[in-house]
């Protein structure tokens, strides 16, 4: 049944699948709200069941992919097909954001005011970039599409991206100047650490403490910076990561088992 087919049979199977799913959804739409909620909860449970069972079920030596000495169970060979299918399904969601942007800028473009030109520029650049990039990545791509792809990606997008993020340097500096005041222990520690980390990274900062004799090299700004990053920053980040990991596990378990309450699950 799942064997590859060609020609008219392919169209028949695809069309049949579409009709089958449409009919199934039409029937399910007639169910009461409570039953629909159980359907969503069941699909959520099934979605997590594969990875949970693959993790919890006992493993034994088996051939997984090209590795003959791997450990796994009967679900392990399906990890790679799942890793191919799941990104394809989630890639379908990219249209949601595009539709939102098109709705917003479509309305603005039709208003014909001073801002309309910006929304038109959005449409032209969006459609142009998508068309050119797809055309330039095809095996039979023309030299023109490759050249345009390079101009739009390396010439425009990469430069815009780098410039936009470099502008943030000005914003952060300006915001920090206005917001940071050494009024509490916390603010003092934060400000002092930021200054040491920045000075320790640049040559001029390192020159400030270069006169200190080697015997007291632990007072060099780059040594202090390194000590802060490895002995304070690393364990604090690790503690936050451990907390996040435990939290994610707890929330994941609640969602998976349908225990979570809120607008998403209750309506």
């Amino acid at each position: 049944m799942l064997e590859p087919v060609k020609g008219g049979l392919w169209y028949a199977y695809v069309l049949g699948s579409l009709i089958l799913v449409a009919a199934l959804l039409a029937v399910l739409s007639l169910l009461p709200r409570r039953a629909k909620r159980y359907i969503v909860m069941t699909v959520t449970l099934l979605g997590g069941l594969f990875y949970a069972l693959e993790f919890f079920l006992p493993t034994h030596p088996m051939m997984v992919g090209d590795d003959p000495n791997a450990d796994g169970n009967f679900l392990t060979p399906f990890i790679v097909p799942m890793a191919n299918v799941l990104p394809a399904i989630s890639a379908c969601a990219v249209g949601l954001g595009v539709i939102n942007l098109f709705q917003l800028h479509g309305k603005r473009a039709l208003k014909r005011n001073a801002d309309s030109i910006n929304s038109i520029a959005f449409f032209v650049s969006c459609i142009g970039m998508a068309a050119v990039w797809i055309a330039s990545k095809q095996p039979q791509a023309s030299p023109l599409s490759k050249a345009l792809g390079k101009i739009l990606f390396e010439g425009a997008l990469q430069n815009l991206d780098a410039t936009m993020f470099s502008i943030i340097a000005f914003y952060i500096t300006s915001a920090a100047y206005r917001a940071f005041r050494v009024r509490s222990m916390e603010a003092t520690l934060l400000l002092a650490t930021a200054i040491i980390v920045m000075l320790g990274q640049i040559t001029i900062g390192q020159l400030l403490t270069a006169w200190i004799p080697p015997r007291y090299d632990f007072l060099h700004v780059e040594v202090i910076r390194n000590w802060i990053l490895t002995k304070i920053n690393a364990p604090a980040t690790r503690a936050i990561a451990i907390g996040l990991g435990i939290g994610s596990l707890a929330v994941g378990l609640r969602i998976w088992l349908g225990l979570e309450r809120g607008s998403y699950f209750d309506e």
Binding site: A88, F123, A130, A156, L160, D161
Partner: peptide
């Protein structure tokens, strides 16, 4: 204007990338 060009190029690239790297091969 350049801000909107950036937004359009990023969106167009994201859509094209999803097609070229994910949907087309997979």
């Amino acid at each position: 204007l350049f801000e909107h060009l950036f937004l359009g190029l990023s969106t167009g690239y994201l859509v094209a990338q999803q097609w070229v790297d994910v949907l087309q091969p997979k």
